[in-house]
């Protein structure tokens, strides 16, 4: 589904990603872990198409298409979803209106008619239950005055509504208390299926306890330095990132 090959990226002349390779297949959940500043969020940003990052080398294909050629909105319409680390406020635009616009833009792209009001409401109701989100939240301006937990839950709700093929969760666990984390993780788990791939970017093991990823990759200094199964995450939790850094410096010294 997603094939990242030797991606190098920089922002304002500073090299952040120094050759990333990653293969993600339908139905898989990948976790990307790593210390602050390692390039995790940069990776999410370039996949979603943020234009301040310059891709200096490498390629990304998504469902057989050259993803780097697509505009951010077309990537989304093709089925890419990014749950933002810091969801953005848009005053005066309700979540309902926002999602309806997004959904219908996507349908238009695929040559479908816009969803009528009745079907849209039915879909909303169904997805609201799935991710345990309160109706009152959806009539308020999107993300405006939302608590950290509400914002993240709203992201997962949007994911449920837009039914992406590939979802990237960028530090969705940051700023959540334990209850909010559980609700968000449950929501994500319900959205797992054989056709959908998920990339989870996180600092910590605790989200992974709930999500049970198929693969864990460790990103340090712009490179994936170690890949493994979910046990790798546990090892990291126990020993910290330093043990990987130590291994690396040893390897470089040799």
């Amino acid at each position: 589904m997603l094939s990242i090959k030797n991606i190098h990226a920089s922002v304002e002349g500073k090299q952040i990603l120094k050759g990333i390779d990653l293969e993600v297949k339908a139905g898989e959940v990948h976790a990307i872990m790593g210390p602050n500043g390692s390039g995790k969020s940069t990776l999410a940003s370039i996949l979603a198409g943020r234009e301040e990052y310059e891709i200096t080398e490498g390629s990304v294909s998504f469902l057989g298409k050259d993803m780097l050629e697509l505009s951010p909105e077309d990537r989304a319409r093709e089925g890419l979803f990014l749950a933002f680390q810091y969801p953005v406020e848009i005053p005066g635009v309700s979540t309902t209106n926002f999602i309806k616009t997004a959904l219908n833009e996507k349908r238009k792209y695929h040559g479908q008619q816009p969803l009528d009001a009745v079907s849209f409401l039915k879909l909303m109701k169904e997805k609201m239950q799935l991710v345990e989100i309160d109706k009152s939240l959806l009539t308020r301006s999107i993300n405006e005055g939302f608590s950290g937990g509400e914002k993240k839950r709203n992201e997962i709700f949007q994911m449920a509504m837009l039914e992406p093929k590939l979802a990237i969760l960028d530090e969705t666990d940051s700023g959540l208390d334990i209850d909010a984390l559980r609700i968000v993780a449950n929501g994500v788990n319900k959205l797992r299926n054989n056709e959908r791939a998920i990339i989870v970017i996180t600092h910590y093991q605790r989200l992974l306890d709930y999500l049970q990823p198929d693969f864990v990759h460790v990103l340090v200094n712009g490179r994936i330095v170690k890949s493994g199964t979910k046990e790798l995450a546990l090892e990291l939790e126990e020993k910290g990132y330093d043990f990987i850094k130590d291994e690396l410096s040893l390897a470089e010294a040799v």
Partner: peptide, 14 residues
């Protein structure tokens, strides 16, 4: 903000 614009575009809104 570019952030607002990008947030919309990431959801498929041009």
């Amino acid at each position: 903000g570019e952030d607002q614009l990008f947030y919309c575009r990431q959801r498929g809104i041009d």
